[in-house]
Amino acid sequence: MVTLTDIERESYKNSPIHRLDPRIKLLFVLAVIIYVVSLPRIHEKNLVRLLAIEVYLLLLVLVAGLDLKYFILRILAILPFGLGIALIQPFLRPSFVENYTPYPLDLPFGLSITYEGLVFGSTLLAKFLVCITAVILLSSTTRLRDMVAAADRIGIPGEFTLLLSMMVRYLFLFWAVLKRIRVAQETRLFNIWNRGVPRKWILKQIGHSVSSIFVRSYEQGEKTYISMLCRGYGSGHEKAYYRAKIRAPDLLFLLLSTGIIACIHIFV
């Protein structure tokens, strides 16, 4: 399992990719995702183009010096959500296709697959894979708070980024609280699949854990708010961030990446 702390460990590494300005990385990932999503849904060049982008993203992963096992685990953790829907596509008849051609393949149970469904399903899976690779690359090379700072500089309203930055700070705290609750439950041999105790009781225990995390996070918010007031927090608060200049390597990376995507689109 990949946990929050693994993500933090990877994003605190030091590499040319990690050192890029978070705004540039955010922009790059958004551009990749928008390009990939807006590719036509059925097109003979889709798979080659998507493969080329995936290769480029994996090259960036290598440059960033990320732990490959960790990276693959993270992709695998997300994959099942979309995999099922993509795999079922060949058996469906895409509603946006007028004429479909059945694939000459005999299957038991009267199932049939269509050529369009197959193409659409494989494109869907490839697009999905490229998108999650891009996001995981972003989150493994950019610290969460830097991402929030980047959002602030891009022009997301300050009140919203204030909320986000505080949330990111407490994410780890409540992850730890959850872990402690789990350990405490394990020491008491609490197991959600235990058939020896009534289900109702199990659900009650889980409900109590939920309310416990809820109340704790609420109280943490209150405490933080009071200490913020003590330190002079008001509506005219200012946030200070370090290094805000986009430098030459950042621009170079952006140019290189847009160039590569354009080349992939034109020449492939």
Binding site: Y170, L203, S217, Y218
Partner: peptide, 20 residues
């Protein structure tokens, strides 16, 4: 408003809890 930020972190953890 800060209370909501901590609460969102709590809900994030709550969503990670498995319910049989």
């Amino acid at each position: 408003v800060p209370i909501l930020a901590a609460l969102a972190a709590g809900i994030f953890a709550i969503q990670a809890m498995n319910i049989p």
